[in-house]
Design a protein around this nucleic acid. Structure first.
Lengths: 223, 223
DNA sequence: CTGCATCCATTTTGATACTG
DNA sequence: CAGTATCAAAATGGATGCAG
């Protein structure tokens, strides 16, 4: 029989923008699903493995809810179903980027066994480098955990492309925590080089990163 | 036997800024508690009534967790315990304001029986009026649901003061949905006046609000 | 393979009653 | 005022099953 049920997560019942936003995307996993889709559409199983640990029924239910809310849309292509953000759903980039900036101190405690997906950097780097511009435009390749991505910087700001069509001239190899430390200005280029965690031509890097404070060794943990 | 300590909300276990932020403030009620505290410190019972419906044990547990994370601090004054944001906790204003802007379409569907607290406007108005500046500075009083607050706008942008020390010269009376509609540019001043939902000297209002598009009657619901 | 649906043990939440 | 204690209901996390 049909399920009439439909509490779709409890509503806070408040006439407040934050509360209404959380009514829609506040349930567990929802914002992480949006984060996954920000760099581009994905299939169900890609979401499963990238999110790591979400149960199949939950992912199904979340995608259905997000679709009903107008945040995610199903695209039926020749290769099967792909999930993509609607324009309104892509607007969640702003609060997500704000969270990424706010949480920078939490990242400086190190990776600590957490899982990692290169595409997360495609979200984090523009968030952390928000005010960086370059004219003429430049691009830097990053090879992280075997995946290649390209950071484009022009007068409008930074943008990251995953799985680029062509390889950029400059490619840096580094661990994710090094890239993040540099972008969050919690680590200097010299420190990264000295530790042997950064390889490649770093001249372009110097041009876009702030001079870098030598405070990286101090505890950035706010607690 | 002693409680061995529980898992303090399940961690996503991801090396990602968004995931780590949600590990810390992603649990139900947490961001709403931060929203309450953004305009200023509050006591336990004030939080209870303003949040409307949170169980006492949950509020206790959330405040403890937020305190342990360094987001909230207990202040023991002569009048008892008050809860306040730490500087790092106050940094959540950015993602919260981004959510408020993103959710504007959800607010245009009307109040719909939701609860409302005037202090929520102290968060929403600066979020929606972010890019508005004024030189020389100006101030407008708002009387909403019996509470008075003052919107200050100067060259740095907007800021709202709740329970101001002195009454401003100009005071507007309006329902919350009208104020929000105007600030979100989904409603024109003329529409609000024509509907009789706005009373007071609106000359200053015109100076800070954009001309206003006449599209307010069209459905703003993104779904 | 992909995209789910069902079952079930464990957690988390919400509502209420009660206390220093 | 500022919480504790208790308990039923709901959400979550895994495992497994299954059709196209």
């Amino acid at each position: 029989m049909e399920k009439v049920k439909r509490t779709l997560g409890r509503s806070y019942g408040q006439f407040c923008g934050l509360a209404r936003a959380l009514d829609v995307v506040g349930d567990r996993w929802n914002l992480l699903i949006v984060r996954e889709l920000l760099p581009g559409p994905m299939r169900f199983n890609e979401l499963m493995t990238s999110l790591g640990g979400i149960a199949t029924n939950l992912l199904t239910e979340r995608l259905r809810t997000l679709e009903a809310e107008g945040i995610v849309e199903r695209r039926l292509g020749e290769a099967g179903v792909r999930y993509a953000l609607t324009p309104w759903g892509a607007g969640l980039r702003e609060p997500i980027e704000a969270f990424v900036r706010w949480s920078a101190p939490l990242m400086m405690t190190g990776r600590d066994g957490g899982s990692f997906q290169p595409r997360w950097l495609a979200v984090a780097l523009p968030a952390l480098l928000r005010e960086v511009t370059a004219d003429p435009a430049l691009e830097i390749g990053f090879e992280v955990e075997g995946a290649l991505m390209v950071l484009h910087v022009d007068e409008d700001g930074p943008r990251v492309e995953v799985e680029p069509d062509r390889r950029p001239d400059t490619i840096l190899k580094a661990a994710p925590e090094i890239i993040l430390g540099l972008a969050a200005d919690a680590l200097t280029i010299d420190q990264a080089l000295a530790a042997g965690h950064l390889r490649g031509d770093i001249q372009i890097l110097r041009s876009i990163l702030p001079p870098g404070r030598a405070t990286a060794a101090t505890t950035p943990d706010p607690r």
